[in-house]
Computed example of a mutant assay.
Amino acid sequence: MSVAGVIVDDRGRALLIKRRDNGHWEPPGGVVEAGETLPEALQREVLEETGIKIELPATLTGIYKNMTGLIVSLVFRCRAIEGQPTTGDETKALRWVTRDEAAELADEAYAIRVQDALDTMTPPAVRAHDGVRLI
């Protein structure tokens, strides 16, 4: 299981990271460690990858399944409460993006996660990796 945080600024943009390992743009996140709660994992991953501490609780905006890796990912809309966006060991670059820019930069599976988080009127989505809505 993994968690990802879509940090949204006061202009309605989301913060994406460019990963060092594969060069892909996506929201910050990662695998939940043994003994860790989902909020703890979310806050840890976002802080490690962006330098930003987020407010908890965060709003669940979607549940996604990576069909290749068989990983379920919970994505949360987040608000920054402390820190400035900075790169780190896992992060090559950071960028604030609009809904449309997310679709241009990120792979479809990650762009959908960001777009769902930015669409505040949409109920939580459950999607497969290829973008097909499961329920």
Score class of each variant (00 low, 15 high):
113 R>G: 10
21 D>I: 05
52 I>D: 06
26 E>F: 02
49 E>G: 08
4 A>R: 15
119 D>P: 01
20 R>I: 00
9 D>H: 10
21 D>N: 09
116 D>S: 05
99 R>Y: 04
117 A>S: 14
101 E>N: 10
120 T>M: 04
76 F>P: 03
83 G>E: 07
71 I>Q: 14
105 L>E: 11
7 I>M: 13
63 I>L: 14
10 D>C: 01
115 Q>L: 08
130 D>T: 13
119 D>E: 14
93 A>M: 02
94 L>M: 09
61 T>D: 10
42 L>T: 01
82 E>I: 08
86 T>H: 15
74 L>F: 10
45 E>I: 04
66 N>C: 06
92 K>G: 03
67 M>Q: 11
135 I>P: 06
69 G>V: 02
13 R>N: 12
79 R>I: 04
32 V>P: 03
85 P>A: 01
80 A>Y: 04
19 R>M: 06
88 G>E: 09
130 D>M: 07
57 P>F: 05
25 W>Y: 11
4 A>S: 15
111 A>T: 02
96 W>T: 09
98 T>A: 02
103 A>R: 12
107 D>M: 06
74 L>M: 13
94 L>C: 07
75 V>G: 03
59 T>P: 00
78 C>L: 05
82 E>S: 13
64 Y>E: 11
67 M>Y: 01
92 K>T: 01
60 L>Q: 14
69 G>S: 03
90 E>G: 00
115 Q>C: 11
32 V>E: 08
84 Q>S: 13
119 D>Y: 02
80 A>D: 11
56 L>W: 04
106 A>I: 03
95 R>P: 02
61 T>K: 15
56 L>P: 10
131 G>I: 06
78 C>I: 02
51 G>N: 07
93 A>N: 12
107 D>V: 04
48 E>P: 00
88 G>R: 03
49 E>V: 06
2 S>R: 10
115 Q>Y: 03
21 D>M: 00
26 E>P: 00
82 E>M: 10
108 E>G: 01
91 T>D: 14
128 A>F: 07
